[in-house]
Design a protein around this nucleic acid. Structure first.
Lengths: 123, 123
DNA sequence: ATCATAGATTGATATACATCGATATGTAGA
DNA sequence: TCTACATATCGATGTATATCAATCTATGAT
C-alpha cells in the first residue's frame, strides 16, 4: 500500500500520473491475486492454453461440422493416434469438447464455448 | 484421398458414418494445412498463447482502466522489471497492447482486440 | 472365454517457455 | 559530456508441454 519505488514517486512528482492511479492499481492487483480470482485465471489459462495450439485448433475446426471419433481425426490430420488422443484430452479438460463413447468408438463433439466463436472469427 | 485405415472402413461398413463424411473431413483438413491457413493458425497461436498466461491476463486487466508504464505494473504486480517487460513484449507481438514512449517511460495501452472482450467475460 | 481392435495411458525425448539477475540501450537533466 | 535512470535485451536455469512408440484397458465379435 505504501512501499513505492522511486520511479513511481517521480511519475507522481512530474504529474505524469496521480497518486490515486497508483493506489487503484494496487487495489486492483490485490483483487487479481485473491484465491478466488486466481482460480478463475487458472481456468482461463486452461481454456486459452488449449486453443493456443495449431493442431488443437485444427481439431476444433474439424469438429465444427460434425462430431468425430478419434480414428477419423487421426486419418484426416495424419497424426498418430496417441497424439490425437492427447490433444482431445487437453480440449476436454478445458471443456471445449465432450466425449461420448459408443461401442468401441469415442466420439468427440464441440461444446458451445464463446472461445469457439472467437476462433472462427479469427480463422 | 483413398488410403483409409481399417478403423474407418469398419465405421463405414457399420454405417456409423458415411463415406462422404470422411472425404469431407479430408478436404477440410487439406484446407487447414494450406500455407495460407497455416499462417492464420500461427497468428491465432500467438494471440491465444499470449492471453493464456495468468500473469499476462493480470497485466491486461490492469491496463483495462488506463494505460500504464512498466514501473507501475512492476509495482502493482510485485514482479521484477525484466519479467514485466518480457510479458509486455509477448503481448505486443500478439497485438494485444501498443507501446508509446514518453520521455524515459514506456506506456502500454490495450488495443481493441475481441480476445480482450472474451477475457473480461471469463473473469 | 478368447481374440481383435479403438482408444487411453505411460514413459522417454525434445522443444518451448517463464523467470529473473546481469547488462545494454536510450533518454533527460545538469 | 557526464550521470542517473526507465526499460529492453541477454543468458542461464528450471519447468511445462508436444510428440509418439510401447503398452494397457475396455468393448464387441466369434
Amino acid at each position: 500500500m505504501s512501499e513505492q519505488n522511486s520511479s513511481i514517486r517521480r511519475l507522481i512528482q512530474l504529474n505524469i500520473c496521480q497518486p490515486s492511479d497508483i493506489s487503484e492499481a494496487k487495489a486492483e492487483a490485490e483483487r487479481l491475486a485473491a484465491p478466488e480470482f486466481v482460480a478463475k485465471l487458472r481456468q482461463a489459462e486452461r481454456l486459452f492454453g488449449a486453443v493456443g495450439d495449431a493442431n488443437r485448433m485444427k481439431i476444433l475446426l474439424l469438429l465444427s461440422k460434425k462430431e468425430k471419433c478419434v480414428c477419423e481425426l487421426e486419418s484426416a490430420l495424419g497424426m498418430p493416434q496417441p497424439t490425437v488422443s492427447h490433444h482431445l484430452g487437453v480440449l476436454e479438460q478445458a471443456n471445449l469438447v465432450k466425449r461420448s463413447k459408443r461401442g468401441r468408438w469415442a466420439f468427440y463433439a464441440l461444446t458451445d464455448s464463446p472461445v469457439l466463436d472467437l476462433l472462427r472469427r479469427l480463422t
